[in-house]
Amino acid sequence: MAKNTVFLGLLQLLPLLLPPSLRDYLWAAPSDHDMDQQLEVYHPIILQGGFSCSVLEARLTDAYTPSLPHCGALKGKGWFPLWNNTSDVVDHDYMPCFEEQMSLVFDPAINDYRNQPGVETRVANFGSVYGFSYKDESCPFCCNVKIRNELEALGYQDGVTLFGAPYDIRYAPPQPGQCSKVYSDYFARVKDLVQHASEKNANKPVIFRVLPTNMRVEAPMVPTTYLNGVGIQTTKQVVYWDGNFDVSPENVYGNGDGVVNWISVLAFAKELKRQHYSENIFFKFVKIPNATHGDITIQDNSLKIVMAEILEANS
């Protein structure tokens, strides 16, 4: 926690924690912007993607032993997109290969997870807002595409005022006492990216739009706006009657954003507020009616709110 706080404080990181927010600011309809609406002052923005948004590439070396012959078809042929399109994986009967090449194994010798032998992976285009791609053709505006378009319409430019920090989602943030070289390396790269983005823009504070990566509540201890959808039926409990785990459970529903139930959201917001207020640091929590977890930067109404928050941070 001390490491996170020092890092964020030194680099003047200004986060916007998603899902988004309600305000009086009237924003033009998405995609109606023109060049006359560009901002005069730009705080650089770093975007992170959702669970499936990062572009993960793989390379199969001689040490790779495929479980099925066609899984080794790309062996020795350099880097290739490991997951580029969900339908392609299914249509080409590549699912068993995908699972094998995506899976991690725990190595007790290093107390860390690693790829399968002979599988090397990397996240493409770190630093670029184009380092994200949607994997489902039914959702062409997913994975920051729509919000990227809106920011570019305001005058934001990739690599100048707009950046991306894609991550290998297979590696969860480590628990205390556990190692994660991938996560540590990512943290260092994000640190360098924040510093680079700030220095490139006259040392302005950076707007870092992120999703909480674990349930451990570690407040960033910088001015923070936390926004979340509400009003969507969300699983609250899963009940196995009579202790019988061989049958499907009964879901008990409550309020939330369709993924995170409202009780958890309120507990998270309350703890963030407590930590920030203890140090006299700005914190705001806003709930957005009828906004879902996955569509928060896709639906027009909720996207308006996200953009309003970004404009306020630029004021």
Rank of each mutant, 00 (worst) to 15 (best):
residue 3 K to N: 13
residue 7 F to Q: 09
residue 10 L to V: 14
residue 14 L to E: 11
residue 16 L to R: 13
residue 19 P to I: 06
residue 26 L to I: 13
residue 27 W to M: 11
residue 30 P to L: 05
residue 32 D to Y: 03
residue 33 H to W: 15
residue 34 D to S: 08
residue 35 M to V: 13
residue 41 V to D: 04
residue 41 V to P: 02
residue 45 I to N: 02
residue 45 I to C: 02
residue 54 S to G: 03
residue 56 L to Y: 06
residue 62 D to V: 07
residue 63 A to F: 07
residue 64 Y to A: 09
residue 66 P to L: 08
residue 70 H to Y: 13
residue 70 H to L: 11
residue 71 C to S: 05
residue 74 L to R: 14
residue 74 L to F: 05
residue 76 G to E: 10
residue 78 G to N: 05
residue 85 N to A: 06
residue 89 V to Y: 01
residue 91 D to A: 15
residue 91 D to H: 11
residue 92 H to I: 09
residue 102 M to Y: 05
residue 105 V to H: 09
residue 106 F to M: 09
residue 107 D to I: 03
residue 110 I to L: 09
residue 114 R to T: 02
residue 118 G to W: 15
residue 120 E to R: 11
residue 128 S to F: 03
residue 132 F to L: 12
residue 135 K to S: 05
residue 136 D to R: 10
residue 138 S to M: 04
residue 143 C to P: 15
residue 146 K to D: 03
residue 153 A to D: 06
residue 153 A to H: 04
residue 153 A to S: 12
residue 159 G to I: 12
residue 162 L to S: 01
residue 163 F to M: 06
residue 168 D to H: 10
residue 170 R to L: 10
residue 170 R to D: 10
residue 174 P to L: 14
residue 175 Q to E: 06
residue 180 S to T: 12
residue 180 S to Q: 10
residue 180 S to E: 11
residue 181 K to G: 09
residue 185 D to T: 13
residue 189 R to C: 02
residue 191 K to L: 07
residue 198 S to L: 09
residue 200 K to R: 13
residue 200 K to H: 13
residue 204 K to I: 07
residue 210 V to W: 05
residue 213 T to K: 15
residue 215 M to E: 14
residue 216 R to K: 12
residue 226 Y to C: 04
residue 227 L to I: 06
residue 230 V to Q: 02
residue 230 V to W: 01
residue 234 T to Q: 00
residue 237 Q to K: 14
residue 241 W to Q: 09
residue 243 G to L: 12
residue 244 N to S: 13
residue 245 F to T: 02
residue 245 F to D: 01
residue 246 D to H: 08
residue 251 N to Y: 01
residue 251 N to L: 01
residue 252 V to R: 04
residue 253 Y to P: 06
residue 254 G to I: 04
residue 258 G to H: 02
residue 260 V to T: 00
residue 268 F to R: 06
residue 273 K to P: 02
residue 273 K to Y: 06
residue 275 Q to V: 10
residue 277 Y to W: 11
residue 278 S to R: 13
residue 290 N to L: 02
residue 291 A to M: 14
residue 294 G to Y: 08
residue 294 G to V: 11
residue 296 I to Y: 08
residue 297 T to D: 11
residue 298 I to L: 08
residue 299 Q to M: 07
residue 300 D to N: 09
residue 302 S to F: 07
residue 303 L to C: 07
residue 304 K to E: 12
residue 308 A to Q: 11
